[in-house]
Design a protein around this nucleic acid. Sequence first.
RNA 1: GCCGGAGUGGCGGAAUUGGUAGACGCGUCGGAUUCAAAAUCCGAUGGCCUCUUGGCCGUGCGGGUUCAAGUCCCGCCUCCGGUACCA
Length: 890
Amino acid sequence: MVSTIYREECNHPGFPIGDDDADMTEYRHEEIEEKWQDYWERNETFKVDTEDADSTYYVLDMFPYPSGSGLHVGHVEGYTATDIVARYRRLQGDTVLHPMGWDAFGLPAEQHAIKTGQHPRESTRDNIDNFRSQLKALGFSYDWDREVNTTDPDYYKWTQWIFIKLFEQDLAYMDEVPVNWCPALGTVLANEEVIDGKSERGGHPVERKPMRQWMLKITEYADRLLEDLELLDWPEHLKEMQRNWIGRSEGAEVTFRVDPETSGGTEAELDVFTTRPDTLFGATFMVLAPEHPLVEEITDQERLDEVQAYCDEATNKTELERKEEQDEKSGVFTGAYAVNPVNDERIPIWVADYVLMSYGSGAIMAVPAHDQRDWEFARAKDIEIRPVLEGGDVDEEAFEGEGPHINSEFLNGLGVDEATSKMTDWLEDNDLGEASVHYKLRDWLFSRQRYWGEPFPILHREDGTITTVPEEDLPVELPELEDFKPTESGDPPLARAEDWVQTTDPKTGQPARRETNTMPQWAGSCWYYLRYLNPNDEGRPWDEDVEQDWLPVDLYVGGAEHAVLHLLYARFWHKVLYDLDLVSSKEPFQRVVNQGMILGPTYRYALDDDGEPASLVNDDRDLEGWRTRVVAPADVRWDGDTPYHPDADVELDVEVEKMSKSVGNVVNPEDVADTYGADALRLYEMFMGPVEQTKPWDQQDVTGVHRFIKRVYRLFCDDEADSGLDDSVVDGKPDDELRRTLHKAIRSITEDTDEMRFNTAIATMMEFVNALYKRETIPQSVAERFTVMLSPYAPHLAEELWERLGRDGSVAHAEWPDYDEALTVDDTVEIGVQVMGQFRGSIEIAKDADQDEAVEAARSVDSIAKHLEGKDVARVIYVPEQILNFVIEQ
RNA sequence: GCCGGAGUGGCGGAAUUGGUAGACGCGUCGGAUUCAAAAUCCGAUGGCCUCUUGGCCGUGCGGGUUCAAGUCCCGCCUCCGGUACCA
C-alpha cells in the first residue's frame, strides 16, 4: 500500500520533524473510505422506518439494469446527485427514503445464457453482487435493507398481481396485431424499442409481422396522462416529449359516401379524421392506406391487379424502406369516387402508403392546397390543387398558414378558427360528421417471446377462454430450462417447458395451457418505487398508509433515455392503481431531473489501402473507403498537446462523444475511485458542471477536486497529534471577518444545494477553504459547520473530520448549519463607476451611502475624475450597492 | 422539416431582478521547498497595444432598445438532443 511506504519514509532519520509539521499528514482514501463504509454498515446509519415518519422525503434513482460491464460514470453522476440531496435532507431534519434495487430482467442475460449455457438467474445474481459492491464502495447512503430485485419471485409475484388488476379492468387484451418482429433477437419489440427500423438493442433489422399479442390499453388514459403533466415539476422538455408522444390532435371526423356507380355497386362510407375541417371545400381526392379493409371492395375490376400489387408491396416494405422512399410519393387510383358531403362533388379515391393504417381511420381527405403531403402527391399524380384560403402560392407549395377562406361558400371570409368551428357545427347539424380527438399514442404491446421476463399469470383453457391464475397461487414462477432459444416452430422459449405449460384451471378443473409469452422489461420498473415502501412484506405489495405518507416521490433522477417509455408506462400503471384506490396519489413522480450524458474523448486513425496506420488529421491522401480504428485513451502517446498512435508516427483525430465500449472511450468509475478515492469521484462528477447538462470527462480535472480533498484534510488534521487534529483548530469564537465569510458560505452552499447546483456549491467550499488557509487558527465551531456542509458531497472525509473534531456519532445525523442574513453583508461595498456606460474605476463606499457620497468618492479617484474633467454631467445613475454611472451632456 | 436546449479564455464552467464578464477548477508560466523528483505552498494568467501611467477590443454573427446588454427585442449561423408522411 502506498501509504505504508510513505510512512516509513517519514520515519526515516534525518527527515525534518517539527511540531507544526503538516508534511506528515496525508489523506489516505483507501483506509478512511473503507473505515466509514464499515461503520455505516455496522451501525445501520441509513436505515429508515417508513411507518414512523412525519417529515418525509423520498429520493429515488432510476434503478439500473445490472449489466455485466458494471457501473458506468453516468450511473455515478445521477446517484451522487440524489445521494447529496438525501444526505442534505437528513441534515435538514427530514426522514429520508433513499433506496436502490435492480431492474434485472432483460435481454442481455438471456443472450448470455444462449451463448454460454449459464442460467440467467446466475449471471444476474453475479452482476447484481458486483453492482452492489461497486455502489457500496462509493459511499451512497442507501437503506440496503430495502433492495428490490424485479427477477425475485417475491417481487414479480406482485407484478403479476398488478397485471391481474389490469386484466380485470379490461385494460389488458389479446389481439392479432402487426408487430415489430426481430428475427435476430427472436422476439417482438414495442414501437419504442425500434429506432430507424432497427432494434434499439443491438441494431438488428426489424420486420412487420401479424402476431397474437398481449396489449395494454394505455390509450384509455391518454387524456389524463396528458392533462396531469400540469401537476408535475418536470423539466419542460421532458413534458413536451411526453405530449408529443401522446400526440393529441383536435379536429373532426367526416363521413364520405362512396359513389356506388364507380365502385362496382359497393355501398360504402369512408370516415376520415381531419384537423382542418375548414378546408373541406378544398378536398380534391381521398387516400386510403394500403391495409385499409375497403380497398379491395371498392377498387374497380380492371385496376384490381395493379392496386393489389401496390398494396402487397407496401405491406411487405419495412419501416426503413418506406422511410427511404419518403421523398417520392407513390400511390395508385382505385377507380372509385367519393362524394364530398359539403358540395356533393365527386373526388377520386387513391391508395397510397403515405397514409398509415395505424393512425386515425386509415383514410384521409386530401387537401393539396393546404397540406404539404397532399400537395406533393397531387403534384406527382397531376390532381387538381384548389386553394380555399387566401395567401401563399399553391404553385410553389402548400399554404399551411392562416388567412380568410375563399371558394368555400358559407365559410368565405372567415379565419381558420371560426371556419373550423362553423364547419364542425355544420357537419354535426347535417349528421355528416362530428368534432373528434385523436391520439398518436398506441396501445402498449406488452408481450415478448423471451424466457427472462415475468410469466403472465394467465391460463388458456381448453375451451379457448382465458382466465387468470388465482391470487393465492402467485407467483407463477419461471420454469427451469436448459435451452433458452425460441422453439423451431417459433414459439417462445417457455413453450419448451411442456410440464409447466400443461396445467389445470383451478377454478373450473378444465385442462389449461399457461401463457408462454413473458412481460417486457418495463413491467417490473412500472411500480418498484412502491415496493420500496415495504419491500419485505409478503402479504401485500405495499402498505396503503405508508404510501399516503411517502408518495409521490419527491425527487426522481435518471437518464433522459427514459423520458417517454418508462416514465409514461409507470404513470399509466399508477393511474390505474389510483382508480382502484390502491394508491392515493395521482402521479408517481412529483419532480424528475435528467442527468446529462457524460462524454469521453475518442482517438481515431485510419488504415490505408496497405493496412498501414494513417492520420485522419493531416494525411494528404484521399481517405475515402479507409477503415477507421480507435486507440484507447490510456495507450495514446502524447507529444505536448498532440495525441499520437502508440507505435506509428500518426497524429490521432480527437472527438468527444458518447461513451461506448465500441469506441473504447469508457471511463470505469471503479478505476477512478481506486486511484483518487470515492469522494474525489463524487466531487468531480458534481464539479464538472450542472447535473442536467451534457459534459465531457477530463481525467486531468479529477486532480483538482482530489487536491481539494487533500487540502481539507491537511487543514484540519495532523496524523502525528494524539487527537489527530491540527493545532490550528482552536476553541473560541471566530472574529468578525471570519464569521462573515462563514455565514456567506453557509448561505451560498445552502441555496446551491437546495437547487441542486452542486458545481457552484463545491466552488464555494473551495473558496472557503482557501480563505481558511490564509488564517493562523480555525475555531472549532467553524470547522464543525464546514464539515457538516461537506458531508453530503464527500461523506467519508467528513466523517473522519467529524470524529477528529471530537464529535460522537455519524455526521450524517448532525444538523445543517444556519446562517444569519445580517451577518452575510459587508459594511462597505465596492461598486463600479461608469462614465457614459464605460467602466472607469471603482470605489469603496458604505453600503448605505447616498448618491452624493458616492459621487464625491468617485470624483476623488483620478482615473474617474479625468473622464469628467470639463464635462457637464447631465445625469447621475446610482444604484446602491451596484453601480454609479455619469451621463455627460453631449 | 418540426419541437426542445446550448454557443462565454487554451479547457470544464461562474455571473440575483439588465449593473465591475471570466468565480471555482484544470492547464500554462514564474517563485519557494527538495540532493533530485513527486507532493506541497505562494504568485501571475481573456486578447492586442504601451517603458510606465494607461488605452483599445472582447460572451456565435448582424441589427436594435437602454445611462448600462452575456442577460431584453428582431433577423441569421452553428452544434447537441428528441421526433418524423400522425391527416
